[in-house]
Design a protein around this nucleic acid. Structure first.
Lengths: 122, 122
DNA sequence: TCCGTCCTAAACCGTTTGGTTGAATAGGAC
DNA sequence: GTCCTATTCAACCAAACGGTTTAGGACGGA
């Protein structure tokens, strides 16, 4: 089972309906009834989707009489952005080192004996 | 089934093992055998995880004799970052409008009759 | 109080997922 | 050719997912 937070959040967004709910909620809080009207599925199905978003921390439900306004916790998107950005950068830096090595080899062919200056390492 | 690309990519990252594979591959290509050594599960299970990443476009498999080096297609992370950033901004802008309205109301109380200037719309 | 509305709970169902084991395929080394 | 290694294929399984239907609970208004 997806026990960790990051997995739950990624999984929560791995569904078009749930992504649409999030998109919708950026425009403002809404009740289940209001949200459910936009989809073909049953109101209960939409409620389940909201529960998934809630367990991921992406959404909270308030209480106003019988109505339960749903609120987007937009800050919970940040861990995902951070993860993506981290590994995008890590991959990018590797390419840069690779390019440096290749440039070193190219320089080696042109001017043999001056290679080591380009060999960045850490 | 998750037919759309974005759903497949989010789903692919909604698993700790697969995220670890991606992290690992930012350091360089690797074969299935090399990768599988790091995990407790069977080699076939790791292969299945790679297939999931492959169907999401996050990874491609080369061919070098019997070995099939796995390569990370890091650019496929961008649509996710874009999606997250888009709706983070959209939510943020809404809060800014909300703040403007609230500031307008506060000004209203202090100086009744000058309200409309702060009512930004759309 | 009674009614209608809003939402949640629970049972059920078909499909997908994440793992297993066992067997098959294909290259490289000898 | 024969063997070893790297990978894939296939069958199977339990659990989770995404939906349904039916029922129930809680609040507000006439």
């Amino acid at each position: 089972m997806l026990t960790d937070q990051l997995s739950r959040t990624f999984a929560a967004l791995a569904d078009p309906t749930r992504r649409d709910l999030v998109a919708r909620l950026t425009l403002g809080d809404a009740t289940l009834g209001e949200l459910a009207g936009s989809y073909e599925m049953s109101l209960q199905a939409v409620s389940k989707h909201l529960t998934v978003l809630e367990r991921a921390g992406l959404v909270t439900r308030g209480q106003a009489g019988t109505r339960r306004p749903v609120h987007l916790e937009v800050a919970m998107l940040d861990p995902l952005t951070d993860w993506l950005e981290r590994y995008r950068q890590q991959a990018e830096q590797r390419y840069q080192r690779l390019d440096a090595v290749l440039a070193g080899l190219a320089a080696d062919e042109a001017y043999p004996g001056t290679a080591d200056q380009n060999q960045e390492e850490r």
